[in-house]
Amino acid sequence: MPQLFSTEGLVYRYMMRLYQIMLLNLMFIISCLPIVTIGAAITAAYGTAFRMQQHSEGNILHTFIQKFKEEWKKSTIVWLSLLGLLIFTWLGYPVIRTLLFSSQISFYAGMLLLTIGLLILLYLFPLLARFDNKLSIAAVNALLLSIRHIPYSILIFLLCVGGGFVFPFYLPKLFILWLFLGGGTVIYGSSLIFSKVFQVYDTIE
Rank of each mutant, 00 (worst) to 15 (best):
P2L: 07
P2V: 05
Q3P: 01
Q3G: 09
Q3C: 03
L4V: 10
F5N: 07
R13Y: 06
N25D: 07
L26H: 05
I30Q: 05
V36Y: 06
I38R: 03
I42E: 13
T43V: 13
A44C: 10
F50I: 02
M52F: 01
I60N: 11
I60W: 06
H62I: 10
T63D: 00
F64I: 01
E70C: 02
E71Q: 15
L80Y: 08
S81L: 09
G84V: 05
I87M: 04
T89Q: 08
L91K: 09
P94I: 02
V95G: 03
T98Q: 15
F101I: 08
S102H: 13
Q104I: 13
Q104Y: 15
I105P: 02
I105A: 12
L112M: 13
L114V: 14
T115P: 01
G117K: 08
G117E: 09
L119G: 06
L119C: 06
L119R: 02
I120N: 08
I120A: 14
L127F: 10
D132Q: 11
N133C: 01
K134W: 07
I137C: 08
V140C: 05
A142L: 14
L143Q: 11
I150H: 03
C160E: 12
C160S: 14
G163R: 11
V166C: 01
F169N: 15
L177G: 03
L179S: 14
F180H: 08
L181A: 06
L181E: 01
L181S: 09
G183H: 01
G189C: 07
S191R: 00
S191A: 07
S191Y: 00
V197Y: 09
